[in-house]
Nucleic acid binder design. Structure first.
Lengths: 203, 203, 203, 203
DNA sequence: TATGAATGAGGGTTCATTCAT
DNA sequence: TATGAATGAACCCTCATTCAT
């Protein structure tokens, strides 16, 4: 039932969206300085307002971090779901997952940087939902590998570890990908897909 | 001349080492909280001294960050050099590099976390030497792939990208490796070596 | 051309003035304790706010020192210019200069104390303008003496040294002038003017 | 009884002298930075020892300030006494006093700077003796003027104010005297003596 | 006498957040 | 919605001084 592999959407209605330009500014500042080193004043500055005005749109600095995480993980899940077809083989699914993931890194590098760098700050009741989505996503990737192993497409490998390996290969891109570099995001994704699939496939 | 691949050691004599227990405490606190969120008070606490006493051993908070980076990159280079033999083939060298790298992550996870998370803070004249070492290391890995491609051991892949991929696969371990987990560091390294080599090798 | 003797006004528009009560409090505290020994907490206390609130009005402690210097030198120059008439003889001009100067000491003793005691702290690009004004003022006094010498009103004396002498006589007042003392500021100024003019004049 | 004008020596035996090189270093550092901004570390540095070692020679930072003041006022009094002869007229005595004073400024400019700048720090029981000496010195100068007025050598002037005026003229020299300047200390003293005497003398 | 280590006290400054306007 | 003013908490760091060696 590959359809079951699609990551489930949350049922609750979404919380009021924070003004996009504010989230964008926060994303850039958090990415450049790190969440703790970033100051509300600099975020306000980039939005073109004064520091206290931000508090008409959010309640706490952490709200911004939350919004960034939420938007990113939601887009990741959405795009991934859109790319996965029930008829695909495990290698095909794996290729799709990696392509979507790297594409997201390329298109939202700042948000991904925040997402991957600031996991430390992510804790407490409010974040549970996000952590659940993140874990579910990883399990889905893990599931693809397990299925590939079952169908003899992939070699016998511990699925969870292998999943983390291929995700790490892609995720790490946030530290070095340069949109002005010699290779486009798609070309790089091709390389990673090639390495990952050959690395996983049974010979 | 594979010997030339060994990363060169710096010629200057090393600066006075900071007291190891202080660096250790800082490593743990920086890893847990992040450099900026970490407070000198907490580091002092863990060492068992009062906050100002730290300043007999360092001049600035940044010194601790520097010491952590320096020790880690130096150990990475040293261990890597020790593991590489001129007689090894490219795949053998790649395997050695990945094993050393993952071993370091497993043994010094906190330090690696600081090293990989806090690159933002790493800038300014003083850090140049470290950045050079880091780049040189990456180029060495890149060089192994290029050599493997020349000797037809590896498939035709852009070496720099492929190098970042396999390094990312391993580096990412700092976010999830659990020394108390089901698999040992060596077992995990075996999986990654298998995936990486098969992924790179020409079929 | 005695008109040329008037000290030139700066052309640039003045920077935003710091709240006067804050500058006043700082003036008193700096005067009583010295700039370095003075604490921002005490200044805040006297203004009736908490320490961090000060930083809504200034950026650094030094800003307060700068504001004090600037206001004082500007008032000195303004008052001096107002007192000098092109038709005055050199002795008349010298008398006017000394009276204005001692009057300023009497009216703004704390500010003058800071101005004369904390020259050490006065350095760096930002202070250049002030140093220029100070020097220009001294040169003007020197010029009066030189003119008096030319017109045979004053004896043959090295103008720069003589100027420093009479200015010292007056300036030194900041160390001992007591507004509650037996003599008023004007009476004291009379004495100094008498001594200075007779000391300078050709017999 | 002009002999009575000589400033009396203290009767108590002097306290143990602080090592001269330490006092010298403190003098320079206090003069350059100001007492409060000066650090014991810098003083120790210039002496060629470490900070805690200083405390084998003094008990508190203030001891250094005290020693500087004491040595200077003692030398001032000693030299002044040596220069005053009972047979001198008031103008001659005034000339001698001013010459000695300016000579001291020229020879010990750093110490004089500390002496004149750091009066604020001078308070408390221990300093009484010094304050007494300082006051006595001023009264002596005042007395010379009073005597000159009585003998009709000087004009009718309030002696205390006139004394502060001529002392200010000379003292102020610590702010601008340059041993490498165009005029020697003696030449400058000549100018000041000329101005002061003509300024005071009855015409 | 000299010093490495330590520390209490305090410094200036930053910052997320609140609130009255 | 916007913001000037304010502030509690906390920060990194300095320093005079003490003490064991």
């Amino acid at each position: 039932m590959p359809a079951a592999r699609k990551v489930q959407r949350p049922s609750k209605s979404p919380p009021a969206r924070v003004r996009p330009d504010i989230v964008d500014a926060a994303t850039r500042v958090f990415s450049e300085r790190g969440y703790h080193a970033a100051s509300m004043a600099e975020i306000a500055d980039r939005v073109g307002m004064r520091k206290p005005s931000l508090y008409h749109h959010i309640r706490k600095k952490e709200d911004l971090l939350f919004a960034i995480h939420e938007q990113l993980i939601d887009e990741l899940i959405e795009q991934t779901n859109a790319a996965l077809e029930p008829t695909m083989t495990a290698p095909e699914q794996m290729a799709a997952v990696l392509r979507v993931s790297f594409d997201l890194i390329a298109r939202h590098r700042d948000a991904v940087t925040v997402f991957l760098q600031e996991r430390r700050a992510v804790s407490g009741a409010r974040w549970n939902e996000l952590v659940v989505k993140r874990d579910r996503y990883e399990q889905m990737v893990s599931g693809i590998i397990a299925e590939g192993t079952e169908t003899k497409a992939f070699a016998d490998l511990p699925a969870a570890i292998a999943a983390r390996g291929v995700l790490g290969m892609v995720n790490w891109g946030y530290t070095w990908f340069d949109p002005k570099g010699a290779m486009t995001a798609e070309e790089i994704a091709d390389v990673f897909v090639a390495i990952a699939l050959r690395g996983l496939e049974r010979r």
